[in-house]
Amino acid sequence: MEKYRKESSLSDEYLELLIKHTLFSGLDKNQISRFIAFAKPYLIELEQGQAARLTGGLSNHLGAVFSGEVIVYGIDYSGNRLLHNHIGSNQTSGTLFSILDYINTQVEVEAKEQAVMLMINRDAIYQVNEALAVIQHRLLVNMIESQRSMFRDLSLHLYCLCQRSIRDKILKILYFFAEQNRSYEFDIPFSREDLANYLAVDRASLSRSLGELKAQGIIDFKKNHFKVLSTQYFQYD
């Protein structure tokens, strides 16, 4: 079971990690402590492979992963999981949770490795408290800046899903990873099952298409490590 509790204070170890987080950029340890005491966020600690389902009021919270990595899934009415994003310890997931709250979709986060995250009620940032106004303003500025990468990731996901064939979906997402890494050899943060979920395709069909691309000399791969062999599909500026 995941540890899932409301906190009004955090250890020095966690505060040191939060200072480095995008959401709390520009704030010192004392300012972060004051905000935590006011906001009383939920602290979620997950072991590798553990998952936490964020339902009800939590879906309108801002999720800040400040240690480890998690994968964010949307859960449909039939209980099927669709992979939405991979979030490391220097990103905020608030925009994603807000969008999913709007369409009444459940959210589940699963730890790829041991992970710690805060779930912060948006009202603690949006509703001005005179004693914390400077801190809240800094958080709002950081949120706006951090959401640029979230919108980019959402656009990438939609762009991949819009491709007509599994082959094109694979080529498109590998192109983006090559561009992101500025290299034709890179690791992707997804297992085969996660990649199939992300692209909304059957895992067996995904494996077959990957095998065909490998046989055609376009790519080579071992587990989640990929190498582009035919760069005509992957040229970037």
Results as ranks from 00 to 15, higher is better:
M1N: 08
S8T: 12
S9R: 15
E16H: 09
E16A: 11
T22F: 04
D28S: 12
D28L: 12
D28Q: 13
F35N: 08
I36Q: 05
F38I: 04
I44Y: 04
S59K: 09
H61L: 00
N80Y: 13
H84E: 09
T92C: 03
S93D: 15
I99L: 15
Q106Y: 10
E113Y: 11
V116Y: 12
M119H: 02
N121I: 00
R122C: 02
R122P: 04
Y126F: 07
L132V: 03
I135W: 05
I135S: 06
H137Q: 15
R138E: 11
L140M: 15
N142V: 03
R148K: 13
M150Y: 04
D153H: 11
S155Y: 14
Q163L: 02
F177V: 00
R182W: 11
R182Y: 14
F186N: 04
D187I: 00
D187C: 06
I188P: 06
L195T: 05
L195D: 10
N197R: 14
L199Y: 04
V201F: 01
S207C: 13
E212F: 00
L213S: 10
L213Y: 11
K214C: 06
I219S: 10
F221M: 06
K227I: 08
K227M: 13
V228M: 07
L229A: 07
L229M: 13
Y236Q: 05
